[in-house]
């Protein structure tokens, strides 16, 4: 009995820690400036005068007497985030999956897989300055594809290790059955292995996408003006008169939450379906 009560309390505490800030952000996104400013009225959970002004403001429609109009709208940062995060994910997943399959089926020894994860042993700061110099030399600074390339490289170890685990767990007899039944190695991969890997691929892609989507540091260092991403842009949302623009930040945070949630819902069907369910006897 006491156990059950403690359990419930623990769950409630965990929920409060995770949900209250998110709910607060949602509430704030729909409040007019007077409701979130330090000098404003008392703070309330439900906006007293719900408004879409914060969103309008982000997309460049008018300011108010309190806040100056933005010199850049949120359109370009959203585009930048979408492009760099998805292309980066594509790079990481394509290379990571290919490498994982090759090493899982034909590789020997543990050195190469370990070497890949060692990329993550360095603090990003230690490698980002050299990368900055290389990128400046190559003319990749402040471009979405330069950012996407770094995202692809940085998240490659995750894509690789996730996919390698899935490939290692797949019974080799299924591929051998396809070989015996007349497939070439490539046909085995496209006709049998990849379709069977739909769920793991979807899950790993979502994971990698979220990593790229929420990056701040790399974007801060590699983009300056044209192609800043949502997190970098969000940090810049302040005004000299009123300080931090919490309403606009909350609205942007809400927008930023949309792609991962939508992707998660889209692939949910794959996430819950078993990996090799029914392939084998037991």
């Amino acid at each position: 009995m006491t156990r059950a009560i403690l359990r419930t309390l623990a769950i409630l505490a965990a929920l409060a820690v995770t949900l209250i800030p998110i709910l607060w952000m949602v509430s704030m996104a729909f409040k007019p400036p007077s409701e979130w400013q330090a000098a404003g009225e008392a703070l309330t959970w439900v906006p007293r005068a719900p408004t879409l002004d914060n969103f309008r403001y982000l997309f460049g429609q008018g300011g108010s007497d309190l806040i100056a109009t933005l010199d850049r709208t949120a359109v370009k940062p959203i585009l930048s985030s979408l492009l760099s995060a998805s292309v980066g994910t594509l790079i990481a997943m394509t290379c990571g999956t290919a490498a994982a399959y090759g090493l899982s089926r034909f590789g020997s020894g543990a050195n190469l897989p370990l070497a890949l994860i060692q990329l993550r042993l360095f603090p990003p700061m230690a490698v980002m300055i050299p990368v900055m110099m290389m990128w400046a030399f190559l003319g990749l600074m402040d471009t979405w594809f330069g950012l996407a390339l770094v995202y692809g490289i940085v998240t490659l170890p995750f894509a690789f290790w996730l996919m390698k685990t899935f490939f290692d767990d797949m019974p080799k007899e299924i591929e051998e059955a396809a070989l015996v039944e007349g497939c070439t190695r490539w046909r085995v991969f496209t006709r049998v292995t990849l379709p069977m890997m739909a769920a793991p691929l979807a899950a790993a892609s979502l994971f990698v996408f979220i990593l790229n989507w929420s990056d701040y540091l790399i974007a801060l260092l590699l983009t300056t003006r044209e192609w800043v991403t949502i997190p970098v842009y969000m940090a810049s949302l302040s005004s000299s008169m009123t300080g931090q623009l919490y309403g606009a930040k909350a609205a942007l945070g809400l927008i930023a939450a949309v792609p991962p949630v939508v992707l998660g819902v889209l692939i949910q069907k794959h996430l819950v379906r078993g990996l090799t369910f029914g392939a084998l006897k037991q």
Binding site: P171, E173, I174, E176, A177, A178, L179, V180, E181, G182, C183, T184, V192, P195, M196, A198, T276, F277, G278, A279, L280, K281
Partner: peptide, 19 residues
């Protein structure tokens, strides 16, 4: 080679294609 041998196999764990 494997594909040219023209033998058919039932694997111990059956190895059906689950998809």
């Amino acid at each position: 080679g494997v594909a040219e041998r023209n033998v058919a196999m039932v694997f111990q764990n059956l190895a059906l294609f689950p998809h």
